[in-house]
């Protein structure tokens, strides 16, 4: 790896992100988040699930340090968040790829901003491009790729900076259904191989249950934590079997019952 490895206690399950009493009131008086506290366990995939417009993305961006909270604090590995940091990498809903740059440069961009030398960052980028299954596309431009491939580029870029935590903002919402399932499976394999902690925002109940170790259910705006669910699903099973497993279906049903009351 390029950057010096940060100490990484192997102990999974201990909280790596602690959100303490976060509230967010936008200029103009819209109250997006109200007194949210939650913990994200290390090495696990945690999902923020809630009705659309409930402030999931706002919370994710506060944790990323992209927007400030009105009150409360976020700790990552015990240190308070004051802005973006090398310990967190963001994956964007609209991919946020630079249309003028090749796949290679897009993936290497995080390292480029850190001043890593060209040969070094290109080598790292190539490795991650291959990992997400895009070997051979290094010199293509984003407009030549499908939505699913573009998000793979976004994922490779986030992996390339070797952050402990990946913050993913509805990464599959612009990807069509068939591609999405394959992508989800690939992503799960990749993330567990790297031992990454993931905080994932989605509005799809099925996606949340299929992917998550822990689901944080948010209420409608101003959001609070409504419920925390830990699906009892054995990973490593055949994906199709998981989707038919009674535990999977029960969890989907429970969440649907919980969310229904927020819909008019």
């Amino acid at each position: 790896m390029t950057t010096a490895r940060r100490e990484r206690p192997a102990e999974t399950g201990t909280p790596i992100i602690e959100v303490r009493a976060i509230s967010k009131i936008y200029a103009g008086g819209v109250e997006a988040l109200n007194d949210i506290s939650l913990e994200v366990p290390r090495g696990k995939l945690t999902t923020l699930l809630g009705p659309s417009g409930c402030g999931k993305t706002t919370l994710l961006k506060i944790i990323a340090g992209l927007i400030p909270a009105t009150s409360g604090e976020v700790l990552v590995s015990g240190r308070p968040v004051t802005g973006p940091g090398p310990d967190r990498a963001f994956v964007f809903q609209d991919f946020a790829l630079m249309p003028w740059a090749s796949v290679l440069r897009n993936v290497a961009f995080g390292l480029e901003l850190r001043g890593v030398s060209r040969s070094e960052r290109d080598e790292v980028a190539r490795r991650h491009i291959a990992e997400v299954g895009l070997a051979g596309f290094e010199d293509r431009h984003p407009h030549e790729l499908s939505g699913g491939m573009r998000q793979r580029v976004g994922l490779a870029r986030a992996l390339a900076v070797d952050a402990d935590v990946l913050l993913m903002d509805e990464p599959f919402s612009s990807v069509d259904e068939q591609t999405r399932r394959k992508f989800q499976e690939d992503m799960l394999g990749l993330l567990s191989a790297h031992g990454k902690t993931v905080l994932f925002v989605t509005h799809s109940i099925e996606e949340a249950v299929y992917l998550s170790d822990r689901i944080v259910l948010l209420s409608r705006r101003p959001s609070r934590v409504a419920q925390v669910i830990e699906p009892e699903i054995r990973r490593g099973d055949d994906p199709e079997a998981i989707r038919r497993h009674p535990a999977y279906l029960d969890t989907v049903e429970t969440i649907w019952q919980g969310l229904k009351r927020y819909l008019d």
Partner: peptide, 9 residues
Amino acid sequence: LIEMGRSFL
């Protein structure tokens, strides 16, 4: 894109 730039420091 600007957020992306900020998030990657």
